Amino acid sequence: MAVGKVPRWLSLASFLSVVIVLVAVSADASVPALFIFGDSTVDCGTNNYINTTRNFRGDFPPYGQDFFGKPTGRYSNGRVIVDFIAEYAGKPLIPPYLEPNADHSHGVNFGSGGAGVLVETNQGLVVDLQKQLSQFLEHKAAVSERHGQTLAEEVFSDAVYIVSVGSNDYLGGYFGNPKQREKSTPEQFVGAVVTGIVESIKMLYSFGAKKIVVAGLGPMGCIPALRARDESGSCSAPVSAVASAHNNAVQGALSQLEQFLPRLTIVHAQFYDFLLERLENPSKHGYVSGDKPCCGTGSCEGRCGAEVPGCEHCSNANAHVWWDPYHPSESIHRQFAEAVWNGTSPYIHPVAVQELFKPAAEPHHYDDKLDLFVGDPLQQLVSESILMT
């Protein structure tokens, strides 16, 4: 049987029905499941299974060369942050939702490279955040049908949820879109993106989530692709300023939201200062370069691919902060994962990620009709967010 009331915006491709019948609940009930939403910062292969362009794929050499020995769809020379989080939690790699015959017993990764908070960001080429939430709801319904609603509720209420998204809305949806800049100021656009994140967190809560990690944006103006456009190779201060404003607005809005949603814990992972330190003092953190990517210089024209003629490729990717013109190296992913897992201040607040993987003392129960916490004072508000068109 399905769980709760299915929102009107839920519309999934028919082939997903083949995937969801293979879901299972975790065999090790003592370790919470892990569910992942977002963009290329967490994508572990989703875009391998959708109809998109090369710009939104990471399934060709030299991606994945330093850990997997082959491309996996990750936008890295190896693993990404959620792979390390899963390892520290004692779990295997969490597979993408769309991967056929995948083992979803430890969790599911819905992240899609290029995805945004706003549906119109790279629309038709990626799995946007709203679609990812739709997929999660269908996954939850399948688990409930197969294993019973009581067990499903315990699994999803005790799980850890990671949300890492937003940069594509700004880089492509705003700064890369002159028409959008004519329609709205940076402040107005930040407001729209932040509102989308808040609504998505409310939806996750209504679906059963109570332990959510929200990753902030890095200094976007310092990505090599933007620095290459500046004659002096400097970071774009306006772009990074928007990222900083976004982070402050998200943290403030979610801190207020948390006060009204019972039993919800929102953990903020602050990537901005973490990355900026390594960009400004790379040698202090074990890097030889904080501005040039390992892959994507020379005649690559902003691309990273072994088959691109004249494309330069360094010999030690993990000695660089940047892997390609848009994405950090596996080493950065590992260092940040270590910081948030261990609770290194000021990069994680209010608790270390490892604390979230401690099982709940007792399961929580939900209203059979709306799948909300019984007695939730914001029940009507959350219900409206689920049923929006």
Rank of each mutant, 00 (worst) to 15 (best):
E145W: 10
I81W: 04
E301Q: 15
P325T: 03
P309G: 07
Y49H: 14
A27P: 12
G113N: 07
G296P: 03
V42T: 15
N122A: 12
V242G: 00
L372W: 00
D158A: 14
Q180R: 15
R229N: 06
T344R: 14
L171S: 07
E307H: 12
A241S: 13
R229K: 15
F156H: 07
R79N: 02
A142T: 04
I348V: 15
V119A: 14
T41Y: 04
V160N: 05
L10T: 13
V18T: 12
C304N: 09
H349M: 10
P328G: 02
S134W: 07
A142R: 11
R74D: 05
H313G: 05
A339N: 03
A243H: 13
F67S: 06
G166F: 02
S383R: 09
F84C: 11
A352I: 03
P219T: 10
G302Q: 07
W323H: 00
L226N: 03
V193G: 05
I162H: 10
T121S: 10
R227C: 11
G90S: 01
D128R: 09
S17A: 08
G296R: 07
V127I: 15
G216Q: 08
K91R: 08
L356W: 00
L137Y: 11
Y88R: 08
P328Y: 01
S299K: 13
S164R: 07
H139F: 15
L372G: 01
S167N: 02
A306D: 06
F207L: 12
R181K: 14
L264Q: 02
L133D: 04
G45C: 05
Q270I: 06
S289K: 10
Y161I: 08
G4Q: 02
Q354S: 15
L93A: 11
C295S: 13
A352H: 06
L264W: 00
F336D: 01
Q130T: 07
T72H: 02
L378W: 11
W322Y: 06
E338S: 14
K369G: 04
V80Q: 11
P238Y: 02
S331Q: 11
E187P: 09
G196H: 03
C222R: 10
G233F: 10
T41I: 02
N248E: 12
T389C: 14
C222F: 09
N122I: 00
D103C: 10
S200A: 15
H365C: 09
G173S: 07
A352K: 06
S283N: 07
N281G: 08
